[in-house]
């Protein structure tokens, strides 16, 4: 059996290598189109075919970015935006996880809470924004709360779903092995719901970024959203682009972070592909 195992292992390693080569190739192919677009954009802009006022150009955007970093302006905006996003995400995510766990584990609390939460979930967040501004003003509180609300629902929903879908047959196993109540939660329910919880975190993060942009575009005196809004009123297209790119990067980085978590925590899943 051991010789067979070694052969199997070798095969696994080989196929792993092939897979990696394939991934590298497909990543290379993925960069092709963006490169073409960038080059064309720059060329058309330099040739004066695209009006630079409206469309800017890659080189102008890069210069604007470097200037913003050098002046320290970027760091200031980024810091305030990140603080808002993190605070809001932490608050909403924590509550979503907590209430999701409670509702997912107790039938009674599900009956009490779930219908109301599901109803509130259908309300578009943007429609609530004016209320938030009226209640909490234009200050930090309304922004953080809006982001928290955005992060709450996906995480609540996925946690609840994940806990509800734990394979009932595994409960019998836990009973026979005499798992304590706490062990049933930490060693059965949470691990089984983890794929959903991580998906919830990912959705909550993207929702939090969206709410951040909305909150900052609607009314702020600092932050990346404000920077975009401010640049728009002065027709500084390059700075608008810088802001958009910053948001895109932030979204990408947070998504990669969740992917990293998934890679480590969900390697047992057969449907999961890194």
């Amino acid at each position: 059996m051991s010789a067979q195992t070694i052969a199997q292992n070798e095969q696994l390693v080989m196929s792993e290598r092939k897979k990696q080569a394939k991934i590298a190739k497909s990543a290379l192919r993925g960069t092709f189109l963006p490169l073409v677009v960038l080059i064309a954009w720059q060329a058309l802009g330099s040739a004066g075919i695209l009006p630079v006022q409206l469309f800017s150009s890659p080189s102008l955007i890069a210069t604007a970015f470097i200037d913003l970093v050098k002046s320290g302006e970027m760091a200031g905006h980024l810091q305030i935006s990140l603080t808002r996003a993190l605070l809001g995400f932490a608050l909403g995510g924590f509550l979503g996880l907590l209430i999701g766990i409670i509702v997912g584990m107790q039938k009674k609390s599900e009956e009490y809470l779930n219908p109301s939460i599901q109803m509130l979930r259908t309300v578009p967040l943007l429609a609530i924004t004016p209320l938030f501004i009226m209640w909490f003003g234009f200050g930090e509180l309304s922004k953080v709360l809006l982001i928290a609300l955005g992060a709450f629902f996906p995480l609540y929903l996925q946690t609840f779903l994940g806990l509800r879908n734990v394979d009932k047959k595994l409960y019998d196993v836990a009973r026979i092995l005499e798992y304590s109540r706490l062990e049933k939660i930490t060693k059965l329910m949470i691990p089984a719901a983890l794929p959903n919880i991580l998906l919830g975190i990912r959705l909550a993060l993207s929702s939090a970024w969206m709410c951040l942009v909305v909150a900052e575009l609607l009314g702020a005196d600092r932050g990346v959203g404000f920077m975009i809004q401010d640049a728009r009123s002065f027709m500084q297209t390059d700075i608008v682009f810088v802001g958009i790119i910053i948001f895109a990067l932030a979204g990408k980085i947070s998504d990669s972070f969740v992917r990293f978590l998934e890679n480590h925590l969900l390697k047992w899943q057969d449907s999961f592909k890194a």
């Binding site: 047959k169 595994l170 026979i176 059965l188």
Partner: peptide, 14 residues
């Protein structure tokens, strides 16, 4: 009383 089910019922994450 150990129990062996028809399906293995292992915890897939372990």
């Amino acid at each position: 009383r150990g129990f062996i089910f028809q399906e293995h019922r292992l915890f897939p994450w372990l």
